[in-house]
């Protein structure tokens, strides 16, 4: 178990409560979420930002962070655009491997071996 709120050499680390703050972003969209565009979905009817985002995603898979950086859109804005494109099935999103699956030994071993062989 990870120790919480440990004191370091007698000093107390200042603690900032985070509860109660508004969180406008969807928890399901992460900066490391992979975005896959559906090439069969028509782009007409989309606003200019959403169309540009789709055009950027159509050639291949990118993370939300990369799309945000490539299009020079703030991450929060990118998340709003992406979530509505996911709702309309223009995009499929794949969240980073959730904590539960990270307990999968085989996956971790593959990651470790790939890093070692880098």
């Amino acid at each position: 178990m990870t120790p919480r709120g440990r004191r370091r050499a007698g000093m107390v680390r200042p603690y900032t409560p985070t509860g109660g703050r508004a969180a406008p972003t969807r928890r399901t969209l992460d900066l490391a979420t992979l975005l896959i565009a559906d090439p069969d979905k028509p782009l007409h009817g989309l606003d200019a930002h959403s169309r540009r985002l789709m055009q950027h995603c159509l050639p291949g898979v990118l993370s939300l962070a990369e799309v945000s950086a490539d299009l020079q859109l703030p991450a929060a804005v990118t998340k709003v655009l992406v979530s509505s494109l996911v709702d309309s099935s223009h995009l499929v999103s794949r969240d980073p491997v959730p904590a539960a699956q990270q307990h999968d030994r085989q996956l971790l071993e593959r990651i470790r071996d790939a890093l070692i062989n880098l």
Binding site: A32, L34, P59, L62, R94, P96, V97
Partner: peptide, 10 residues
Amino acid sequence: YLAPGVSHSV
């Protein structure tokens, strides 16, 4: 773009 086949991120 990521290589085709890349389907999981960490």
